[in-house]
Design a protein around this nucleic acid. Structure first.
Lengths: 234, 234
DNA sequence: CGCCCGTAACGAACTTGTTCGTAGCGAACG
DNA sequence: CGTTCGCTACGAACAAGTTCGTTACGGGCG
């Protein structure tokens, strides 16, 4: 021990590092991502940005997934919650908020995938929940259904964003889509009659239309489907 | 160059390797996964099983995601499509098929996550699509809605399986869930009245009940929501 | 019969996430 | 004022995915 050739420079002599913190790390992460894309946002790159080693970051974030979740919540701040206070049909305003959410995710396919897996719990996410609950409530949806419904609505929006955004971005995803289309088209009408008959319909429509249709499916379904444990829902 | 110390053993002298192929690789992958779990199914482990190097596998599978997709389709063979031919309410039979699908995914959280991202196109997946389309058709759902509907139904089932299965398995996911619960409970009724009021409802119910409710929400919604491009749907 | 080339297979290397053990700082305590 | 303790920071190491350049196999051509 001792006599290591390394010189243990006192940290005071360094050009005043801002000291690590969860917030600082998240801010730096957002900056790197905006500047170079999510792929470049690695632990090592981020550590370099903060003039430290990768291991140091793990004191403040559990792993990359959590880092991504933090970054995502930051971005969720730009979701437009205006429609909550606006006038007009509650259903349309609800869809507008969800569309805004989807649009934000759409910008960052990787984050959308994270959100599918990670389960956000940040400040902006809570505000989004509150907004959706308020709109459902305004629409007369019983509390019990609304509580379960927001989950389904957000899950649908998130999953759709993850799917479509990455299809546009990654060449891989496009290939997979092509493979599926080819597989469905190549199916025999003898063994798979419905699939053969609907092969065009399955892939028809623009992404936006399908997304919107999905929102309406869910809202209509939520309004009309009672929870099993409470036929009258409270 | 030349005079490399390595001895280029003729491949004929080896104990008759079965020669690589996409099918062989998938089969070996399934075997490893069943025996040791998905986490242990790494490219290196799989290569070792097939007595080769990791790089060799990339001739047959694009990457780990595709490997997982292949494995998943293999497992989808065990989804119970019996309810398609059975008698009884079409809606209940539809839900039974979807539940069987979810149950299979539930066994392998990692694969469920893959399925969310990758977009399967294997043989068994196509049969599942055919089964769902047949049931929707039997229920009198217009073709256009059915085509878009299967996507949404499977997406919901997959996402739910991925979420809940990993919550049961990984300690991480449980922590995230706890974090969200804590965040919601800790919210001020002043700023987030709906959230505070419904904090219990949000997390209530057993997973199975929520899943079933979701299926019914979707089926009801699909039945009653016309596609934007065709008010009458064909 | 001998050479040649396309392709499967491979070993090594590079990148990234994550963990381990250690070292120094600063606060609390005697 | 000196010692000790907890905790942050960090370098190094390990495992895994993926790519690159090279090597041998085996069939076709001269």
């Amino acid at each position: 021990m001792t006599a290591r050739p390394r010189t243990p420079i006192s940290r005071r002599e360094r050009p005043a590092k801002p000291a690590l913190s969860r917030e600082g790390i998240t801010a730096a992460a957002v900056a790197v991502m905006q500047a170079e894309g999510l792929e470049k946002l690695t632990m090592r790159r981020l550590a370099q940005e903060l003039d430290t080693g990768p291991a140091s970051l793990y004191v403040y974030v559990r792993n990359t997934a959590e880092l991504h979740a933090n970054v995502l919540d930051e971005l969720l701040g730009s979701v437009d919650l205006g429609p909550v206070q606006a006038v007009g049909d509650w259903r349309e305003r609800l869809v507008r908020v969800l569309s805004s959410y989807t649009a934000v995710l759409f910008e960052h396919p990787g984050l959308a995938r994270s959100a599918l897996v990670s389960r956000p719990s940040g400040k902006h996410y809570l505000e989004l929940l509150e907004a959706l609950l308020a709109l459902l409530s305004e629409g007369g949806v019983p509390d019990g259904r609304a509580a379960w419904g927001v989950d389904v609505l957000l899950q649908f929006a998130t999953a759709t964003a993850a799917e479509q955004a990455s299809r546009d971005a990654a060449p891989d995803a496009q290939d997979e889509q092509d493979a599926l289309v080819a597989a469905v088209r190549g199916v025999s009408p003898q063994t798979h009659p419905r699939l053969a008959a609907l092969s065009d319909e399955l892939f028809s429509g623009m992404a936006e239309d399908r997304l919107n249709w999905g929102f309406h499916v869910l809202v209509n379904g939520i309004r009309q489907t009672g929870r099993p444990d409470a036929p009258e829902d409270h």
